[in-house]
Amino acid sequence: MDQLSIIWQGLPSLLSGTLVTLNLTFYFLALGFILGIILALGRVYGPSYVKILIILPFERFFRAVPELVLLFLFYFGSSFFHINISAFIAAVLAMGFRSAAYQAQIFRGAILSIGEDQMKAARSLGMNTLQSIRFVILPQALRLSIPSWANEYAVVLKDSSLAYAVGVTELLRQGRYIVARTFGNALLVYTVCALIYFILVFAGNQVLKHLEEKYKIPGYEFKQRREQSVLERI
């Protein structure tokens, strides 16, 4: 059978797999983003018992356990508690929590790099802690987070392929089906999968790069031209 026609006929299922992959990625990142910001703010501004009892154990656990193990724990482990959750939800929880632990570190680093002076100025105006965080700290911290967050986006998108292991029909599983159904060329089909992942990561990073550019603070631009001229002189 003509190899190219296998890809051509398999394209609709590959694309529907791509949609599932994008869906997974969106939920991983969204859960990780919201929870990550809460964890980071808790680490920096929260009372120490919350840090010691909740935040640190959570972060340590989800950073230390491999994602595949987390996935199995959530999917197969849930039945132990007589809870039935779909493979999709299990994946979202396992990978979303994992991403939250990582994103928390990204945001915490950004918040700490802003320094205490900004908080002092906000509090001196009479803002409470939440107002200071919302109007002064987070707008700056989020800007600083974009470069590292682009990394996390790439990691999360690629790791969505692990959901294959619990039966979510995402991109990689659709590829696997095509290979099995058509006795087709594994190299070719998986190369197309790889290409789709590459395009998604590349496009996403372009969007983030654009955001970084759009929201950069005037006067704080990296003095690229001057740096170059110094390098040229060496």
Binding site: D117, Q118, K120, A121, S124, V136, P139, Q140, R143, I217
Partner: peptide
């Protein structure tokens, strides 16, 4: 109701 002016200005950079 108490203004504060800092040594390093502490303006909101963004």
């Amino acid at each position: 109701s108490i203004g504060m002016v800092f040594q390093h200005f502490n303006l909101f950079t963004h």
